[in-house]
């Protein structure tokens, strides 16, 4: 156990050292070169701003995280549901899949304002954009996972006379799980970006609105503070998915590595 902990520390140490060095270097350069804060604020100043504006910043990040999470869950569930439908009906797949591709090709930035027009300035358009951003990778991965069972496993289950339902619950579902998580590890971040982009095009609350306003006012320090916080929030979401993956992928050799 001590070894494991030490292994963890020593494997993370280089990243940590690099991160700390960059911050120190950044702080030093800004001070020595006397770069004005409206161009590039020093890290210390940004951290200070996070503290002074904490209630506004944290409240708004929380709003965005809620929207991103809801959109992530919605988009992922829809994709998983559709993947199951595809498994049972090739006709539905042939009819629907081209639409999924079309949705994927539409730039998120372009539909965000449209969705705001339709769904108002509340949380709904953010959820929708986040869901759309999550949808496609999950659909593709889960569809493949449910289908692409080892040929010998299929043969074996067929010899036993398994029903399609038995094949699903004993094999296909597990086969799709690693691919589902591989997709989710990518799409949580996309959900967060989707929610922020939706906030750009008109919203009352959310870290995206702070970013837009700070941009208008050329408040670089506030921009950096918002960027820091939304990155931290995305990271927290990512690690939540990672923790769920640890639980769900309980058998050896099941992780598709990130």
């Amino acid at each position: 156990m001590g070894d494991v902990a030490r292994g963890w520390v020593s494997s993370r140490l280089p990243a940590f050292v690099l991160f700390a060095s960059v911050l120190v270097l950044w702080e030093g350069i800004v001070r020595l070169a006397e770069i004005p804060a409206y161009l590039l604020p020093a890290p210390g100043r940004i951290v200070l701003r996070i503290f002074t504006d904490w209630s506004s910043l944290s409240g708004n990040v929380w709003v965005t995280v809620q929207a991103a999470t809801a959109g992530f869950l919605l988009g992922t569930s829809l994709a998983v549901f559709l993947a199951f439908v595809f498994l049972y009906s090739k006709t539905v797949e042939n009819a629907v899949f081209p639409w999924a591709i079309i949705i994927k090709t539409i730039p998120i930035i372009a539909i965000a304002p449209l969705l705001t027009i339709w769904l108002g300035f509340g949380i709904a358009p953010k959820i929708a954009v986040a869901a759309i951003a999550c949808f496609f990778p999950t659909l593709v991965n889960v569809t493949r996972g449910l289908r692409a069972l080892d040929r010998e496993i299929v043969d074996y289950l067929q010899i036993l006379g398994s029903t399609p339902r038995q094949m699903l619950v004993h094999a296909r579902v597990y086969n799709a799980l690693p691919l589902l998580f591989a997709a989710m590890k990518i799409t949580v971040g996309m959900a967060m970006i989707g929610a922020i982009v939706a906030e750009f095009t008109g919203a009352n609350l959310g870290i995206g609105t702070i970013i837009v306003n700070a941009g208008y006012r050329q408040d670089a320090t506030l921009l950096f503070a918002a960027i820091f916080l939304s990155s931290a929030a995305t990271l927290a979401l990512y690690y939540t998915v990672l923790a769920l993956e640890r639980v769900a992928l309980f058998w050896p050799e099941s992780r598709v590595d990130h």
């Binding site: 038995q166 597990y174 050799e253």
Partner: peptide
């Protein structure tokens, strides 16, 4: 049927793999 590769279900324990035919 025994194949050249064991073709076990990786997500089931040895016991679950052996029980599976009876469950099915």
């Amino acid at each position: 049927f025994v194949f050249q590769s064991p073709a076990l279900l990786p997500w089931k324990t040895l016991m679950e793999n052996v029980r599976l035919p009876l469950d099915i």
